[in-house]
Design a protein around this nucleic acid. Structure first.
Lengths: 313, 313
DNA sequence: CGTGATTACGTTTATCGTAATTATA
DNA sequence: TATAATTACGATAAACGTAATCACG
């Protein structure tokens, strides 16, 4: 049994049993992959792929088990390489954060500033995307840390760490009748054209379900990925905005008024997602603790070791 | 990075940094091991072993990490091989139980009988030893399942599963004055010569601590590994015996009387120990469930995945 | 027939073992 | 000086890529 044989095996399984596709992805030849897989099957004494003539048709029961174990094994091999990189790199590595606009714009700046202060030689990069992309980048290992409020729970290969809670607010142009008197209700909101986040983003799911529970149909005239866009259109008078509280700045947004909306939509939890089984570097732990001070290394390790039940905030 | 390089590395680390010893254990040459380790260090860009001239002196910090990960990785490689064996072997594998005399003689016969009924093609073998040996055999992978009442908790690499509880009894020749009237006490026991288990075995630790708590010094004239020996000497009149309740058979041991001793020494818990991270075969799960019906596959998997806190009986 | 997997074969690389060398206790 | 690790080197083997073959849609 060789490490490459396992790499070939896993890649073929991932690519829907296409040997040539896997070979191309691994920068090697079709026959090589084919032969090594056959050698592995012979050595183990087990058929991994059911063949229909010359084509791979399906994965056998023992094959599924072998592939599952091989994936864990290869992750450990990755981890060994990462140890090398961390210690050999002389402190300068790279950290890729996958996150949404909301986090990058309103929650992370302070954290990033402190992080680059402490780790000037680590190349930090932010991959911005929607929650699904974020989760997939992290699952594939293209990003080290995912930060999002939505969708991460759908990926069992990710370990979730609750970081902080936040609430929405309703924004309106100064003098707008809806916010003139206090006690804003969902029914009142539903009477106005609304501008808020794209369905996949930043607690939009809670907004939807709040209206649904109240059996109201909001009139969402525009949805956007970020609060800056939403604020712009609210200022233009297109409607009321619903954004994250932290995205409203009374000084900068002096043309707008904000009304707290926790009583309408409840609170959202922003989480960090980490690929299960991956070895974290010193600065990974450091970034996490800067972002969520209640998550020191020990807590992160416990969550990574745990069976997957979410650590309670 | 090759699997063998990792095998070499781990073996050298295990053998106290002696390359020649490791080479011998791996049935290969000294220079081969030396070279492969150096190649691995070069590839990772990390020094794993600190050299003092030509001798390996110590393990570096990154080295410790690499070795720890390599051990996990090699265990997964083992697991892949085990999948092959289980499926290729056509159902006939082998199961090695490491246990003490007490378990083998009094707790296991019924279980073993049912197991060989169900799995006639599995070669079952029992390795008998003291609890320390049992734990070490299991840790090294020489045994699949450890069963003992003592010492297993000292091995962090073993996952512990509480199986059943049992109590001691005091045995005496028929007509012995100590058991003539009821209400046996520790003070009474301490007045007679006693025969019981060897200090490493079968709840002897609880016997000792019970006397200690009562500030009594028992007069243990003879200690043995098994109840059969103890019973023999009690019948000869050498003293009172303290043995596991299940080892007394009123019919077979008609020359002896037994008095329950739970109120004196409390209850003991017999546990199964499994090597952490090892893949279990269908019949491993089956044996465990036959022995401890409250431990179906699901419960065992949960305990194996868990962080190590003992599953509560 | 075209796509995609296996078989055949020659080249290249790396692994293994023996022998020689070097450094420490 | 004896023990133990590294370096040198030659034989063996296995992995890789190209080319040819074979099965299926």
């Amino acid at each position: 049994m060789k490490l490459q044989q396992l790499r070939y095996l896993v890649e073929v399984a991932r690519r829907g049993l296409h040997v040539s596709e896997a070979a191309e992805a691994l920068y090697t030849s079709q026959p090589g992959v084919s032969k090594q897989i056959k050698l592995l099957e012979d050595e183990l004494g087990v058929v991994i792929f059911e063949r229909a003539g010359k084509r791979l048709a399906s994965v056998t029961e023992p094959g599924r088990e072998v592939i599952a174990i091989a994936e864990r094994l290869l992750r450990e091999a990755e981890n060994i390489k990462r140890v090398g990189e961390e210690y050999a790199g002389g402190g300068n590595g790279s950290l890729v954060i996958a996150t949404t606009h909301t986090q990058a714009r309103y929650a992370l700046p302070e954290v990033v500033k402190r992080f680059v202060d402490r780790h000037p030689s680590v190349r930090l990069s932010m991959h911005q995307g929607n929650p699904t992309q974020i989760a997939e980048w992290t699952q594939k290992g293209e990003a080290d840390i995912a930060i999002a409020t939505e969708a991460l729970e759908l990926y069992p290969q990710l370990v979730m760490l609750p970081c902080y809670q936040w609430v929405h607010c309703v924004i309106a142009p100064v003098g707008h009748p809806a916010v003139a008197n206090g006690g804003l209700t969902l029914a009142e909101l539903a009477r106005w054209p609304l501008i808020t986040y794209d369905p996949a983003f930043s607690g939009r799911s809670r907004i939807n379900s709040a209206f649904e529970r109240a059996q109201l149909t909001p009139n969402i005239v525009l949805s956007a990925i970020d609060a800056d866009v939403i604020k712009t259109y609210v200022e233009l008078g297109l409607g009321l905005g619903i954004i994250a509280r932290m995205a409203y700045d009374p000084v900068r947004d002096s043309g707008l008024v904000a009304v707290d909306a926790e009583h309408l939509f409840g609170a959202n939890t922003t989480r960090i997602g980490l690929r299960r089984g991956v070895r974290l570097r010193r600065y990974d732990y450091d970034f996490i603790e800067l972002f969520a001070p209640h998550l020191p290394r020990r807590a992160v390790d416990m969550a990574m070791a745990g069976g997957g039940e979410e650590y309670q905030l």
